[in-house]
């Protein structure tokens, strides 16, 4: 119970931090394309270490990777470099601020 309480408080603080941050959603296409779940895992397990990354979604169908990140901590160039490290070039589809609710 105590753990749940602590975790809940931590989640609230985390949400609060998100509100304060300059959150953006970056959508990119990769070259080479993602072929399978292994490619998705490779991207997710590496890009998560770019500072300020909060969420990564990959979609094989649309061949798009969506990344929610804190723009005060990282830039698109940081993501380009991170993708390059694992053998991908990226083409930015959009990079829009996430509207605060």
């Amino acid at each position: 119970m105590k753990k749940i309480l602590i975790s809940s408080i931590a989640s609230l603080l985390f949400c609060g931090a998100l509100q304060a941050a300059d959150m953006k959603e970056l959508v990119v296409k990769t070259s080479p394309e993602m072929h399978c779940q292994r490619c998705e895992n490779k991207i997710k397990s590496n890009i998560r270490f770019v500072k300020g990354t909060k969420k990564i979604n990959t979609d094989l169908k649309s061949q798009e990777v969506s990344i929610s990140y804190d723009a005060e901590k990282s830039t698109v160039a940081d993501f380009e470099a991170a993708f390059k490290k694992i053998g991908y070039n990226i083409k930015v589809v959009s990079n829009k601020p996430i509207e605060k609710k």
């Binding site: 975790s7 985390f14 998560r48 270490f49 990354t53 909060k54 969420k55 990564i56």
Partner: peptide, 8 residues
Amino acid sequence: TYKTPMEI
């Protein structure tokens, strides 16, 4: 088990 959002 608890993993932070990016499983860091």
